[in-house]
Design a protein around this nucleic acid. Structure first.
Lengths: 243, 243
DNA sequence: CTGTATCGTTTTGTTGAACAATTCTCCAAG
DNA sequence: CTTGGAGAATTGTTCAACAAAACGATACAG
């Protein structure tokens, strides 16, 4: 019953694991992580010389990494001036949430049409987030809140939708970093995640979708107001020279 | 009436025109065009040496270009083997159409909620396409058909949605190239574009959305069957060594 | 005090060469 | 027809060099 095509497909998927990553890819992974972690706050200039020396890679290789990050919109490349960690505008945040509304609601709809939901990973994200919140590990709470939504999208089984969501969330992380004390921003939303997954379990798709929509609306509103406040009146020395 | 914010926004948009492009960006533009035009059919290996020499750029610069194209999924980078023009699978095509359904229908809905539609560019795309079809310029017909859908998405005024659509269509072009005689594939759909824009003009948003949905369904079906046929039985010597 | 012209410094943009590592090609042996 | 292997070709990565642009500070003119 194992068709030739099935074998080919499976092996083709395994292939990418076999193919090791080049230096440029690994460097961009590191930088991606460190940008997300806040080591390089938005506005920071990423010097080719200093970072290249720190990581022990040549400027040419580092430049390839920068191209990748630039295409992901995590950094902005300005000719003859260098690459800077992206500084999101309020318009960016609004646009990101617009896309999230589209993607997450569409994913739910598609998943519902397709068949029974595989809610394991969704549940796992909620429960790990609740556990982390109980112990005050707020940065993990933030990560797991985002992962919950990533898993929602994963229900649709679309590779491109998954990747798109992943990039949107990476970009959105930049917004959290410009706000101080953003870690606990996510905590109140855990209850709502729990509610959504419960509704999904009971196959109340429409209700879950409405709940999700309201979640995103509220989160956007709250984030945007905090975001604008922080922008008008930068609180601390967090802001690095962007000129 | 000209708010400070409006001025800032306009200037920010102009800024990118002021910032000239680097060599790597210009090279990737050229390669993008030539891939879309069919000079490099899917499966073709893009040799660093030959292309670098032909364009008069160094290997290092060319590599930066390849990274950009790879991130756009127009080429696939395999370690120690080089970059190849992407060969889409049937699953890829299906996934691309899934995304198109989501994006185009969402765009229509958002545009309808937002306010009066600016249908100028949409009309223009339809009319230019009809003119091109009348004179048998089929490659232009194909381009303008895709542009019509791009303009539909533009009605939503979302930068990220625009860019996403643009990349999806660039990727989808790869599918047309593996089918021979794909130029006239688009011609029957011009009537449907005309119908959609007419419905939009009359503010029959729901009806237009249904029409658009049916368009995409039919196009996907037709493309996929032609696509699978061509894959199973490659017609000519078009297929270049992909090993 | 404000603006601007200028010059030296720093950083990026791009190239060319070099070498290691991997893959490809082709041919011979089993 | 498959397996092995030697040599050729290509990619991966670094390094050094130089042109070009941006930055910074200082001096000068109004």
């Amino acid at each position: 019953m194992t068709s030739t095509r099935a074998v080919t497909t499976v092996l083709a998927n395994e292939r990418r694991r076999l193919a090791r990553l080049g230096t440029a890819d690994r460097v961009s992974e590191i930088l991606r992580e460190q940008i997300a972690a806040g080591l390089f706050p938005p506005g920071t200039r990423l010097s080719e010389e200093s970072i290249g020396e720190a990581l022990g890679v040549s400027r040419n290789t580092l430049r390839e990494s920068f191209r990748l990050l630039g295409h992901e919109k995590l950094v902005v490349h300005e000719l003859n001036r260098g690459v800077f960690v992206r500084v999101l505008t309020a318009e960016d945040v609004a646009d990101l949430f617009l896309l999230r509304q589209i993607i997450e609601s569409s994913a739910l709809e598609i998943a519902g049409r397709a068949g029974p939901l595989e809610l394991g990973p969704v549940f796992a994200a909620v429960e790990q987030a609740e556990a982390a919140a109980g112990e005050g590990r707020w940065d993990e709470v933030a990560t797991l809140d985002l992962q919950f939504h990533q898993e929602i999208v994963a229900l649709a089984h679309s590779p491109r939708l998954d990747e798109l969501m992943h990039r949107l969330l990476a970009e959105l992380r930049l917004a959290f970093h410009v706000m101080h004390g953003s870690q606990q921003f996510h905590e109140p939303y855990l209850m709502r995640n729990r509610k959504i997954v419960t509704l999904l379990k009971r196959k109340k798709l429409d209700q879950a979708a409405r709940e999700l929509h309201a979640y995103l609306d509220d989160a956007q509103r709250e984030l945007l107001s905090a975001f604008r406040a922080e922008q008008d009146q930068p609180s601390k020395g967090h802001v690095v020279s962007d000129r």
